[in-house]
Design a protein around this nucleic acid. Structure first.
Lengths: 190, 190
DNA sequence: GGATTATGTATCGGGGCGATACATCGCGGT
DNA sequence: ACCGCGATGTATCGCCCCGATACATAATCC
């Protein structure tokens, strides 16, 4: 998962770990953070796999910038050709795993780079997954309602409402997506 | 965390792993599941720590029940005295960790067994935590809004709305809690 | 009678998190 | 002039949890 996110972010421009983490937060928001404890090992793994490489391109700073003579420390990573392939591959696969909580957010964050049919597939899969869960909780709740204390009950119902809200959100998105495909099959929204 | 949940559930009656997992689902609903891959190792650890023990009490089945002569396989666990202590302890501690996503749900599920002051403390802590997060996302969003594509933006805003909804939910609960404490300081709702 | 589903216990690899360590830089306060 | 603090920066460690998997028996359905 983190791998997908890193590939996606590096797709824009080379970045070092700290920046990557900032972007991760800015992109995924309240969904998830990804700690350094996940990030750095992942970067190492990805480098070993050849998806990313250290970028030694001495970027000429525009002007007036402080003379950062020598002084290394930052490790800037860039996508390799294989990394780009890998990214495209991961986006296109988008199996049932991407309906799940953890994966969905990340996939969604890179929808702008995802093929329209795949977008719809993911949204519908996610919705189906949530509907399943909702029904499961509902029937279980119906069976055990009287045995639960008021707090447990409130927890369940709040959860149910959240799931319901996301289902409605997804339905709107699917609708929009379908219209945009129909009217212009090959365009990505900004 | 699982430890707390197991202690809470065994507080009611002795249970074996499979049942425990069912109860876990029924109690926590859409919040989290806790897989067997977490449950069984946790049970082993807890047994080693002495919080729980195998229950060999041959429960006399009422009547007409199938003769389950001998035939073992199920491992039924019950709370030990230390386990009960541990549970009470964990409920009373309720530090900042219990404001976090994973812990909050579990703590809340056992609110009926938690002291009223602790309940309020947890609810307020959780709310403060969410408000922090909300502000963080909001300012970050304000700064980077124009650089984000429409999908990322929608993801952020949906997340923001969810956080907002939970804050409002918590506020209601806090209000109710305060009133109930004021009117009758020593009662737990059903 | 055969197949699927529920009940049941258990392990394994992998991934993510929080805490922690350590180091530098710029800024504001006194 | 100095100090501390918060941001920038890289990195590791132990813990917890999850999904997949294995295996075995009872019930239930067709």
């Amino acid at each position: 998962m983190l791998e997908l996110a890193v590939l996606g972010l590096l797709h824009e421009s080379p970045l070092h770990g700290y920046e990557l983490r900032q972007r991760l937060k800015a992109t995924l928001g309240s969904f998830r953070a990804f700690s350094y404890g996940s990030l750095y090992p992942t970067l190492r793994r990805m480098k070993e796999s050849g998806w990313i490489a250290e970028d030694e391109g001495d970027a000429e700073v525009v002007a007036g910038a402080p003379a950062l003579t020598g002084k290394r420390g930052k490790v800037v990573y860039k996508l390799t050709a294989e990394g780009k392939e890998r990214f495209t591959e991961l986006l296109a696969e988008a199996g049932p795993a991407s309906w799940e909580d953890e994966q969905f957010g990340v996939h969604f964050a890179f929808f702008a780079k995802t093929a329209p049919e795949v977008r719809v597939r993911i949204l519908e899969g996610r919705r189906a997954r949530l509907e399943e869960r909702r029904e499961g909780v509902r029937t279980s709740l119906a069976r055990t309602r009287e045995r639960l204390d008021s707090y447990t009950l409130q927890l369940q119902e709040h959860g149910l409402e959240s799931v319901d809200r996301e289902v409605r959100w997804l339905s709107e998105l699917i609708e929009t997506e379908r219209n945009s495909i129909r009217s212009n099959p090959s365009t990505n929204p900004l």
